[in-house]
Design a protein around this nucleic acid. Structure first.
Lengths: 160, 160
DNA sequence: CTTGTTTAGTACGAAATCGTTCTATATTGA
DNA sequence: TCAATATAGAACGATTTCGTACTAAACAAG
C-alpha cells in the first residue's frame, strides 16, 4: 500500500477498482431476476453499449473470458428470450448475437432499479467527482484494452 | 451511456470499473502459478492489506461472497501452505486465518511480476492521473462498503 | 481444384461457486 | 441454570466456469 512508487500506486488503484467492482456486482445481482446473474446482464449491456450482431467469439474476446463460458451464458440468455442467435451470413462457422426487445427492456429496467441503490452513496461522494473520474477511467480502460495480449492467455479469443 | 443525468454517469463509471477489473483479473492470473486463480491472490492480498487473524466469516463478509465459497478458497490456500487456520481462542465455533511466510512471499512476487505488465499502459496514461484518482476511488470504495446491506443479500456474512 | 492449416463453435469432464441444510458453540433471557 | 435463539463452519448437491478435445467451415499454398 505504499504510494511512493509507480508499482505501488498502480496496484493500489487496481485493488480499489477490484473491490468496487465486487461490491457493485453484488448490488447488481440483488436487482436482477433470480434466474439471472451478473454475466447475463453484462452481456446484454455490452450488446447495447458496443453493438449487437457480434459473434460469440468476438464477445469472448471482449470479455477476456473463455469461449465456452461465453457460449454457456449465451445459451441461457437465448433460452430466456433475451437474445437471438442467427447464422452469420458472412461466415458459415459462426453466429451473430442479437438483442431481443425483451433483452433491451430487461437491461433498461435493471439500470433503473440499481440507480437508486447507489443514490445515497453518490450523493455523499459528490456527483462532480464521478463526472471528473469518468473520462480518466474510460481512457485507462481503452488503453488497457489496446495493450492486452501481452500477457499470453489462450482460449480467450484472439483479436478479430 | 448518456452522461447528462446522475444515473447515467454512475452507471457509466461502474461499467468502466467492471471492465478494468476484468482485464486486470486476467493479467493477474497470467502471472500467478498455474494452480492458483485470482480469488486466491485476492485473499492473500486482503490479509496483508487489512490484517490477518480474521475469521473466514469476516472475510466472506468483506468480499461479499458466500461463506461456502470463501471456505473452499481457504481450503486450497491452506493445502498449498500459503495460510494457516488456527482455532479462535475467543470463540470455539470459529477459526482465524493467518498468513504463512510462503503466503506473504507469493503475494510480493506476484505484485512484482504484474507491475511491469502495466508499465507501458501506465506510462502512456500518466502516473499523475493514477495518483490523482486513487484517493477518489478509495473514498468511494469506503462509502460503498459502509452503505451496503441496503440491498438485502443473505448468505454473505453479516456485519461482525 | 486440392491439401494442409487456421478458426468458430460444440461436447464433455473437471474445477469453482453457490444455496441449503446440518452440527456445534455461543448468546440471550427468563 | 437452562431452554430458546443466533452464529460459524462443514457437508452436500446444483449451477456456473473453465480447459481440452472434437467438428465443420474458411483460408492459404501449391
Amino acid at each position: 500500500m505504499t504510494e511512493e512508487n509507480t508499482a505501488g500506486v498502480v496496484f493500489a488503484v487496481m485493488t480499489e477498482i477490484g473491490i468496487i467492482a465486487q461490491l457493485s456486482r453484488t448490488a447488481l445481482e440483488a436487482r436482477l431476476p433470480d434466474e439471472l446473474i451478473a454475466p447475463h446482464f453484462t452481456v446484454l449491456n455490452h450488446l447495447v453499449r458496443v453493438r449487437d450482431g457480434q459473434t460469440p467469439m468476438a464477445m469472448a474476446n471482449a470479455f477476456q473470458t473463455p469461449k465456452t463460458s461465453m457460449a454457456y451464458t449465451l445459451k441461457i440468455l437465448e433460452k430466456r428470450g433475451l437474445i437471438e442467435m442467427r447464422p452469420n451470413p458472412e461466415d458459415g462457422r459462426s453466429k451473430c448475437v442479437w438483442l431481443t426487445d425483451a433483452g433491451r427492456a430487461l437491461r433498461e429496467d435493471t439500470i433503473a432499479k440499481v440507480g437508486p441503490d447507489f443514490a445515497a452513496v453518490v450523493q455523499s461522494f459528490g456527483l462532480d467527482r464521478f463526472v471528473e473520474m469518468l473520462p480518466h477511467l474510460r481512457a485507462f480502460r481503452i488503453l488497457l484494452d489496446e495493450n492486452r495480449d501481452e500477457t499470453g492467455i489462450s482460449n480467450r479469443g484472439e483479436m478479430p
